[in-house]
Each structure stands twice: as C-alpha cells, then as structure tokens.
C-alpha cells in the first residue's frame, strides 16, 4: 500500500493544422473532416498537460525539478510546435493527419525520454470542449 504521486504541469502553444489525407478523395475528406479540411488550415490554442511520476526526493520534496521539466518540454515540443503549422513544419505530420489523437502520440514519444521521472501520460486540450489523452499504451498507437 502507500501512495503513488504524480506531478502535473500545463503548457500552452498555438498552432495551426489542416485535417486532410491523400488516402481519401476530396469528397471523402470533406465528409470526414468537415470544415477542418479547409485548404488553408486553421488554428487552436492548445493546452498540453504532462504527468510524471517517481519518488519524492526527501531532500527537495520534489518528484522532478520543475525548471528541468519545463526546459525539456520547451525544447522537445513547444519550440517546434508553437506558432507553427503542424502539417508543414513538423516532420511527423507530413503523412499523418495532425488530429489531436495523433498529436498526443507524437508528444508522448518526444517526452518519454525525460530522464528525471517517468512519463505517465499526456493530455492535450484542443478546445475547452475536447481533449485527448495518451499513456503510451500500444493499443492507441498509430500504425
């Protein structure tokens, strides 16, 4: 027994995307993605929630030094995503539709090597009304 503790931290970035795939016809793209398939894309103010777990260091009272976590997330995700087009500027989305589901997977993959604590999950809020989570479980992994 005992308690398991996670540290949660929120980050924000603004990015644009277009939901469209060459695997579908233009009509099918329009049907599946609706106005999200508009040719010039559109933007969101994303909120990224990162949860890590580990032992609380008795000397510092911390699971991980926040400044280190912030620098890591900034370097691995925010710098490349913030104020960019996910489709055009992030290599992972050249051939993968940048839905928020896929965004979660990409962010998890980028953050899982954080050396100071175990990455438990990432949650990405696309708008106030929809959010997605990924915990590295292979079942959710794209093929």
């Amino acid at each position: 027994m005992g308690v398991r503790i996670e540290l949660g931290r929120r980050y924000r970035f603004a990015a644009s995307h277009r939901l469209h795939t060459d695997r579908l016809s233009e009509e099918e793209n329009a049907r599946v993605f609706g106005k999200c398939a508009n040719p010039y894309g559109h933007g969101h103010n994303y909120v990224l929630e990162v949860s890590v777990s580990g032992n609380v260091d008795p000397a510092t009272g911390m699971i991980a030094n926040l400044a280190e976590l912030d620098r890591f997330v900034e370097r691995e995700v925010i710098e490349e995503f913030d104020h960019h087009s996910l489709n055009e500027d992030v290599a992972a989305f050249r051939d993968v539709v940048p839905t928020t589901e896929n965004l979660c997977i990409e962010i998890f993959e980028r953050l899982k090597s954080f050396p100071r604590a175990k990455l438990e999950r990432v949650r990405v809020q696309e708008t106030a009304n929809n959010s997605f989570e990924y915990d590295g479980n292979q079942k959710g992994k794209r093929t």
Binding site: R4, I5, L7, R9
Partner: peptide, 8 residues
C-alpha cells in the same frame, strides 16, 4: 501545476 495522489 498540480500533484495527484493515488493508492499504490
């Protein structure tokens, strides 16, 4: 910033 506790 938040912390979560769960039963181990």
């Amino acid at each position: 910033l938040f912390a979560d506790c769960y039963r181990n």
